[in-house]
Design a protein around this nucleic acid. Sequence first.
DNA 1: GACAAATGATACTAATATGGTATCATTTAT
DNA 2: ATAAATGATACCATATTAGTATCATTTGTC
Lengths: 136, 136
Amino acid sequence: MKLITRDTSYALHAICYLAKENDRIISVDELVKELKVPRAFIRKVLQKLNKKGILKSYKGAHGGFSLNKKAKSVYLLDIMQVFQGPFKLNECVFKKKACPELKKCRLKKKLDNIEDYIIKELKEISLKKMISSKKL
Amino acid sequence: MKLITRDTSYALHAICYLAKENDRIISVDELVKELKVPRAFIRKVLQKLNKKGILKSYKGAHGGFSLNKKAKSVYLLDIMQVFQGPFKLNECVFKKKACPELKKCRLKKKLDNIEDYIIKELKEISLKKMISSKKL
DNA sequence: GACAAATGATACTAATATGGTATCATTTAT
DNA sequence: ATAAATGATACCATATTAGTATCATTTGTC
Ligand code: FES
Ligand code: FES
């Protein structure tokens, strides 16, 4: 039961590396050397982040990637959702038909509360906080 | 990105039903009729819960299942872990070798904090709370 | 302009997890 | 003895995750 998949993990580490290097353009080659991650896989990850506007890409010789936003306005939740889609604790599914007890079910309400909390937490963690050396 | 799989969901609903019926022995047939869930699947789910000591089973004619614990001492986390294994936000994996920055990595620390929080939350939700009609 | 160095786009494969089914063995109330 | 139940297991289908490979396009440099 994991909340963060491999691609999200690679993305996080790549983005953290980029953030620490400020606006330097960094090639896939450099990232592969630094992070020891499969080249083809990380390329796909970076391209996706570029399409979502989190990274900027530079084509051609001496090309590469850099952050497209301030480190304090990139959030963990956003990165997770790029690769893992929207967050849903429990769909409350019984086959095809809508859950009959939806309105009075306490379980569903509890789960929704937890979901809201997790989302709030993940939204508060900015890239800046991640790479900071300060506590919390 | 879902935190609760289908089998956990079925388990929760079955267990809630059992809890509401106190110590009555309830057959798979009854559960299937009540919950409209695939018979073979729910059987597997119930057998697993029995092995883990959360349910008691009664074989033979008029057999079935009942709760093996007080509703206030069965927790959501336990049920989830029966089907989904131990909770791990992020394994911090770079291929086979241990993560080199494990000790100073802030990202890892943040994720661990979130993980701890989720576990704490899920541990606090007892079956009794789930089926209660009171708030929170 | 030729060329090399980079990313863009896309299609493919392999491994694992999830969701579900089927079958036969065993136990037990009647 | 028999029918009604669970136990144990093996199997199958689909989706997701993880990873690879290939060719097209862009761009700096000689
Ligand atoms: S989760 Fe749907 S009624 Fe409980
Ligand atoms: S998660 Fe391992 S060094 Fe950051």
